[in-house]
Design a protein around this nucleic acid. Structure first.
Lengths: 342, 342
DNA sequence: GGCGGCCGTGAAAGCGCTCTCACCAGGGGC
DNA sequence: GCCCCTGGTGAGAGCGCTTTCACGGCCGCC
């Protein structure tokens, strides 16, 4: 004989009745409030399992003003999201970190102005408690729009525009660039070029800055020795070919992403240059699906993307709980991983 | 002077007050109920914009018993989700289709038994109105678990286990396999092999069945002329190499995915075979990031993944609205796309 | 002119939960 | 012996919305 007199999912009322306590006490047990007697605790727990009770999220959200969901927003032109395995990686890392924290992940992919409007509406609509935003490109409207929202946001990397008040988790891209380039210098290389990412992304700018700091390159050097590879495999190939044509005596290159480095290696093969004998190559990312599998295996700068996302999630959860955060901006270290290419 | 006397987001009450109507009428306008006078309509709309009103989802969900969210579940071993661009494509297609329908997408990635338990709990928890499930592997517990839930679910492709009562959108994989193989036969090829996907996926089994139907292969032929490439680039390369070693006079091969075909082409190059002169190759997927860019460009069987996901979403939404669905199972057509490889 | 019907509207119930507040024991301090 | 405090509990308000129900006014019909 069931305590429920009505159909459908059991409510807290049903649980309370079955446990012989009030709804308030049942609620206290569910939210593990300290002031509940062991007996009540046990009775309620038993009733919950017996009834297969699941709290109604909507009702809970209505009173707590918490949805238990977080948006993960990628603002990136369409093709990128397919071609670059980095994104799959980021999405997966976010899914895992958020699942571990028992918050649900609502994925927003922003490709067009309409998508932007929709995302803005969505974020303003109170569907989520906070957001993780990946919007690296210069001119992206999202960060500006997001900061008007009364919604905690943590950025991946440094977005463009004023940083004041923003929370972000970045990697030490410049430091990584220095690491890569100094490694090449230590190998005795003299003509060191760089295939850069698109310079409308801070990460690309910073990695280039690292190369420049280590080489002490002049403006003319930069124009001569660097080429934008757009963070794509094809772009890396094209940029490498261009660099070789312009600087035939190039003996090393710092390529600002593993995906581009894979393309660059192809271009070097096509040009008949041996790696690392003729040209040493250092990548960036230490992407597990790329760096160990290139020919030769790629020496690269390791950045732990999973770790970055984990930090972002931790940071956001702290903001949601209104706990003090150590710093608004976290910068994670990078490290050199030596393999065959340099 | 604001009508609101309290801080925070405006409520429907505020809108109603500002528009000079009751909360009920304001609600009717928001839900575009037919029986509202034009004046009331206008007044409410004006008040909404003036106040920047956004309905509280939780409150709405509480009474309508609708969350406005749908889960998208991928049950797939971990490495796959990185390496295969197909997934990024699926995720993007789902994001777009769901966004168009104004429902939010909650992404669930299931890699481990713990993930499974969590996903099950989540789906049972009433967080979402329905689910799109991608769980192609034999032995996956998810479909069995999901069918116990009082939750509309639409599957991508044919899951294993009893199909009774399941809603799914599949591609005509067998028909595609026939198409590919008959094309090779029409080219006059005599020794036609196949690199298959993992045979714990129905799509792989069906594509192989298509090849078999077209070639009329015996069981011994199957053992000799086919090799599992695991739907990965590396696997395709390895399987192709094995096939070449076993059947030196092979003059054509149907490779059951573009990613594997890319690997197979590499293996053929390494073995010094010309494509299509010595060995003709037909892939499967017509993946836009792969098929047009292989060397030579890949002749392949087109399946429109975006379309599949769109059908899944439409089907699910129909289920959610409790509208009649034409059929529980939809099978989308495939078509041959001729490029350079065959 | 009277009446039924329909249209637009508002009052109010209630969705399932959390949390404040009040209450009641019981124990310890004076 | 009285009071205060503390730990456990329950009654009930209220979160913001949808939706039922009842009501008043207007039209058209006989």
């Amino acid at each position: 004989m069931s305590v429920q007199s009505h159909p459908g999912r059991p409510t807290l009322e049903d649980v309370a009745a079955k446990a012989g306590v009030s709804r308030a006490t049942a609620s206290r047990v569910l939210n593990s409030s300290p002031r509940v007697s062991p007996e009540a605790q046990e009775a309620v727990t038993a009733a919950v399992t017996a009834l297969g009770y699941q709290p109604n999220q909507a009702a809970r959200a209505l009173v707590t003003r918490r949805t238990g969901a977080v948006a993960v927003v990628f603002s990136e032109p369409e093709p990128k999201i397919f071609a670059d395995p980095h994104f799959a990686w980021l999405i997966r890392a976010a899914a895992r970190s958020l699942a571990d924290a028992d918050v649900q992940m609502v994925l927003l992919l922003v490709h067009s102005p309409e998508d932007m409007a929709r995302a803005r509406r969505f974020l303003a609509g109170g569907h989520v408690d906070g957001a993780l935003v990946f919007a690296p490109h210069k001119g992206d409207q999202l960060p500006a729009a997001a900061r008007k929202l009364p919604l905690p946001v943590v950025y991946a990397g440094r977005p463009w525009g004023p940083l004041r008040g923003l929370h972000l988790v970045d990697h030490d891209n410049e430091g990584g660039g220095v690491l890569a380039t100094e490694h090449l210098i230590a190998l005795g290389r003299k003509r060191i070029g760089s295939v850069t990412g698109p310079l409308d992304e801070h990460s690309a700018v910073d990695r280039l800055a690292g190369w420049r700091a280590a080489t002490g390159a002049s403006d003319e050097d930069v124009a001569l020795l660097t080429e934008d590879g757009g963070f794509s495999r094809e772009g890396g190939k094209r940029a490498m070919a261009a660099l070789l044509a312009r600087v035939p005596d190039l003996d090393a290159v710092f390529v600002a992403s593993d995906l581009m480095a894979d393309g660059a290696l192809e271009a070097l093969r096509a040009a008949g240059r041996r790696v690392p004998e003729d040209v040493a190559v250092v990548g960036f990312d230490d992407h597990p699906a790329i760096a160990p599998h290139t020919t030769p295996p790629l020496t690269t700068v390791r950045q732990d993307t999973g770790d970055q996302v984990k930090h972002m999630v931790t940071h956001l959860l702290r903001l949601l709980r209104e706990e003090p955060v150590r710093a608004r901006r976290e910068v994670l270290p990078t490290a050199l991983v030596t393999r065959g290419s340099a």
